[in-house]
Write a protein that binds this DNA or RNA. Structure first.
Lengths: 226, 226
DNA sequence: ACGGGCATGTAATATGTTACATGATTCA
DNA sequence: TGAATCATGTAACATATTACATGCCCGT
């Protein structure tokens, strides 16, 4: 996964909204970006120190009556420049590691009902989330009139909504398909796993020519073979 | 990102199709799972050694006239059991780190046209991929008749198709929205960045109550607050 | 009174990619 | 002839999470 350190920019993005402490940054990332970005505080504190040493942020220490002092960081003009510069560079595609699909790929090792259960659980999860997104979309839309920039937040939300729609459609299709496979299996003569493995192995070999080629960097349309 | 080591299961999944070398596994993961899973060989070779020491795989060394011996690994009954056991456990949601959306969230720091460019590039990328997926879907469908298990592969492909559809729709909506913002900006009086930052800062504070809560583990429907 | 949020950080550990090392064969 | 693929591994490094350390305040 390491390619370029994105944590820096997530932190700078938060600081661009106003001065904040490490704790504030983590909480706000969780709350506002949590659906498409994550950072742990174990990353944030060292990153803040580095940003400061590079002159992209400054720190002010407010002594507190409690124990730990509160360190409030502010973005500098250089920091803003770095942020804008990053915004101008084409984004890298997100890392892909979808466990549900990995399970699906070798799902024929277990009865279809096993996958159906997972899919149903996903569906419940996404359905709940869909409702929350809708509610929040309504809220944001009321603010666009007085704050056009709310549109950008709305855009990220819209991405989530479309994503969820796609996921839910897949869940429905998958359940239907898996149930059909189950029915067919009940009717047809049982087949040994070793034979099925061999058949899949053959299929993969035959598929070779038709296989779509993943390109893992969008930026250079050149797509070095990966 | 570390939670449970999934590499083991990706490797076991490949081995479940038949004996393979580390090199074969990496190549096949790239080609068949590449669109929703990735592993580097720096992970695969150590994992194979570990699987072997745990009795989930066995190795056979074929001496080669060239230089390096070819180490072919096979899955053991225990390995198959471990795979089935993993298949039975609910999948964890994929890690979320979408750089395009992070850029979108703070996109008001740069002219809308900057984001438009990124979105157009994404669109080109996904459009190309869509064609490849369609072609491959046609191929797979011709094989389902003689190999029902091809259905599982088709399911993962279908997930990708729906995902791409959603992405493409978002791209179109985003371009429309961003162009509208651009037009409005040209007409309206210019506003200082500091004022805009302050407004966004306020919006985030006000949004707090309406914010959807990300749950990062599907399995326990209980969703500990994250 | 006990759990969670507030609050800051470090250290241990896990996970992941890329560079290095080495060299044959194949294809344009 | 030079790049890509075949082929296997190790080591250096980057990145990320969780546990540890410490302690107040607030709500139930």
């Amino acid at each position: 996964m390491p390619r370029e350190n994105k944590t820096r920019f997530a932190v700078l993005a938060m600081l661009s909204l106003g001065p904040r402490s490490g704790y504030d940054i983590q909480r706000q990332i969780r709350r506002t970006l949590g659906h498409f970005w994550s950072e742990s505080h174990g990353q944030i504190y060292p990153t803040l120190r580095k940003l400061r040493s590079e002159g992209l942020a400054t720190a002010r220490t407010l002594p507190k009556k409690g124990k730990p002092d509160r360190n409030v960081f502010s973005i500098t003009p250089d920091g803003r420049e770095a942020l804008r510069n990053w915004l101008g560079r084409p984004p890298e595609p997100p890392p892909v590691r979808n466990e549900m699909l990995l399970k699906t790929f070798v799902g024929w090792h277990v009865p279809p009902s096993v996958l159906v259960q997972h899919v149903e659980q996903l569906k419940t999860y996404y359905t709940d989330l869909e409702g929350q997104y809708q509610k929040f979309a309504r809220f944001l839309k009321t603010r666009v009139a007085e704050n056009v920039d709310a549109t950008y937040w709305l855009l990220t939300l819209r991405s989530g909504q479309l994503y969820i729609e796609a996921r839910l459609r897949w869940c429905d299709e998958a359940v239907t398909t898996l149930r059909r496979v189950e029915r067919d299996q009940a009717r047809a003569p049982k087949c040994r796993q070793t034979a099925r493995s061999a058949r899949m192995n053959k299929l993969i070999a035959e598929a070779k020519a038709a296989l779509p080629k993943p390109m893992n960097r969008v930026q250079d349309g050149v797509k070095k073979n990966v």
